[in-house]
Amino acid sequence: MLKIGPYEFNSRLLLGTGKYPNFDVQKEAVEAADTEVLTFAVRRMNIFEANQPNFLEKLDLKKYKLLPNTAGASTAEEAVRIARLSKASGLCDMIKVEVIGCSKTLLPDPVETLKAAEILLNEGFIVLPYTSDDVVLARKLEELGCHAVMPCASPIGSGQGIINPVNLQFIIEQATVPILVDAGIGSPADAALAMELGADGVLLNTAVSSAKDPVKMAKAMKLAIEAGRLGYEAGRMPKKQYATASSPAEGMVVS
């Protein structure tokens, strides 16, 4: 069971809703992923095209918790504004604090992220900040009272997988709140590794939406995350440099 603030989830896969080929594929992928948390972005509406389809309208909102992000913000002030807008929908009180500090790498601005998180925590939000894999920053976000911390595996949408498993492990070891690996996951192996390292969950988007078959990949991610979690709970064997035979050394049918 994954607990984030007051909420409990059976699924440890949080799914983004951007960049799918179409809504039908997306809906099927969301179902295949068996996710309970969906992220969204907040954007200006095209008021002259009120009938433009919106994915949110196609969902049974009783089945999902919405996790809006503050994507587009480059300052704490902008992030706070987007968070407040999302909450005014009356649909959610969780917020993924995402304050981008570099347009090329899309890496987060740690100072502004910390500032935004503090303001939003004071306003009663359930705060899940997107961060780099900085170990000290992760601790400081926890100390502020964030309900989960979401370090990236590698840059957003890059699909490079976990480029610094050592840092990620440090973040996980010191954690007192759920650690959700967010961004950079490219394949089921990456997601499984994150879970084997002890992450509490994985948030991904492009790995599914840009797969050749997003529905199949959604299912693969669900299974990988379940397998990784089970592996973590089971406790892997220690690595050894040399071989150890699995079959008995006695009674061999050779002279």
Partner: peptide, 27 residues
């Protein structure tokens, strides 16, 4: 930011700056 409950009573005046936003797909 206006709560939904405020929509019916909030009066518009000339020159108002209004933002109308919604949720779109995002990660």
């Amino acid at each position: 930011i206006l709560d939904k409950s405020m929509h019916a009573e909030t009066v518009l005046t000339d020159g108002d700056r209004i933002e109308i936003v919604h949720f779109v797909g995002g990660g």
